[in-house]
Computed example of a mutant assay.
Amino acid sequence: MIRPNQKAGAENLLFNCAGLSSGDHLLVLREDPDYAYYDSEIADVIVECARQNGVRASVQTIPFDPMEARLPQSVVAEMKAADRTLFLSRTGDQLRFNPEITNIRPIMSYALDVEMLGSGFGSADYAGFVALKNAVNTALADATHIHVTCPLGTDFCGPGAAFPTASAADVSVTRFPMSVFAPVPSAGFSGVVIQDGFLVGTGSKFYEPYGCDLQEPLAVAFEDNRLTGFSGHPMDVHCAQMHYEKVGQMFDLDPMTMHSWHAGIHPGCAYPTPAHENYERWSGSAFGNPRLMHFHTCGNYAPGEICLNVLDPTIRVDGVAVWEHGVFRPELIEGGSDILEAYPSIRAVFDAPAQQVGQGPNGRLSAG
């Protein structure tokens, strides 16, 4: 039996996001549940809900390559033949910036289990969050000055967001739930990001070690597209330098790059266990909560290979704190209040935002 909250999340995915109708074909591509990244139930719930609504659904378990997204041509052909394809696999995340799959329009699920699917994260109206994302993109692009701080000392600023296209079409897959705005290019920005707890990968490639633990908050200075230095505990500085150098050599790229940044827009996104217990799972799902801000570094492309993460950012757009200490206030951007009024399910998650985003016992992002 599908629980009512799980059905609400699955129907939000199938109809508000995927746009499916009775008679359509959904292809679900999942990774082996033994990896313990996605739970084994979420595919069953989505497929059963699809069938109850007359949608034909088929499921395939596909291989997962930690270093490179590989899809057999037979699977690509099936994706093209289906009305929509849903990835319950990190392969979909690895493909999210690949323009070759844009016309296939696959969906990548950042709801990793039935709890996330059945929460406000999965059930709050998808179309409303797309509208909210677009409103944020417009506000950032129209701004003349953006200033970002955090309680630990992050402090950087720059001009309005110079998105690469007018529409800020930032990925080649449809993301479900919609939980971030388009990555803001770092060109024109400068200052310092304070990274607490750890450095971690971006979901592009799953190398070892995926996380680099830090003893104390690490200051990461940058200017435009360059990281200009680390400061903090001497051991942390040494570990960060070695980690960036190692990852750069591993993938033959310039490690000291800062490509772009974004913050979460979905207060329903929760991660109830400490990030350090599973860095891969945390970095692939928690970033959608407004309490987290996420930076793409180590590679002059999104998402890069090492991400920085800041807890409880304040983001001032032309002097207005649209994010304040990790609280996103959509009513402060044009059209935001209208979206909250039009979508009660979105208003509900803003009225009761998730607070758990992977903090450790000390209430901060920590390595243990």
Rank of each mutant, 00 (worst) to 15 (best):
A270K: 08
A135V: 09
N278L: 04
A161R: 04
I265E: 07
T174D: 13
V220P: 04
G358M: 14
Q249E: 12
M178K: 12
M250I: 00
W323N: 08
V171P: 01
F181K: 04
K80E: 13
S123H: 09
G92Y: 00
P274F: 06
N98T: 14
C17Y: 12
V200N: 05
A8Q: 12
S190N: 04
P274Y: 00
L112M: 03
S186W: 07
I346W: 01
N278W: 02
L218K: 06
A275G: 10
Q241F: 06
S366G: 13
E324I: 04
E341L: 13
E341P: 02
F189H: 04
A348E: 11
L95S: 10
D312S: 15
V171S: 14
I146F: 09
A143C: 04
D338K: 03
L27N: 03
N12M: 12
L29V: 12
A348D: 09
G211K: 06
L86C: 05
E324F: 06
G92V: 07
I101Q: 10
Y210L: 09
E305V: 03
C239Y: 06
K80I: 08
C150S: 15
Y210C: 02
T297M: 02
H238R: 15
Q60S: 12
R3H: 07
Q249T: 08
I2V: 15
F206R: 05
M235D: 13
V193M: 08
P63D: 14
W323A: 06
Q52N: 11
H266P: 09
D252V: 09
N134Q: 15
L20Q: 05
T102G: 13
F87D: 14
Y343T: 03
M79W: 05
D170I: 07
L26E: 01
L95K: 10
P313G: 13
M67L: 15
A162M: 11
R51W: 09
V310A: 01
V192E: 12
A270D: 11
H294R: 04
L117H: 05
G335A: 02
L218V: 06
K7D: 14
G358F: 10
E334D: 15
L26V: 04
F328W: 10
M250Y: 00
E277G: 05
A124V: 03
I42Q: 08
P99M: 10
D351P: 03
T149N: 10
V310D: 03
G268H: 11
V193Q: 08
P159R: 03
D338P: 05
K7R: 15
E78R: 15
L112P: 00
A161E: 07
G268W: 08
M256Q: 07
A10T: 06
D351I: 00
G160H: 07
L214K: 04
L132T: 01
A139M: 04
T174W: 11
H266R: 07
R30M: 14
A187S: 09
E31G: 13
P234W: 00
E78I: 06
L340I: 00
G248M: 02
G23P: 00
L140H: 04
G120A: 05
P66A: 10
G203H: 00
P72N: 11
D142S: 12
A182F: 12
P209W: 02
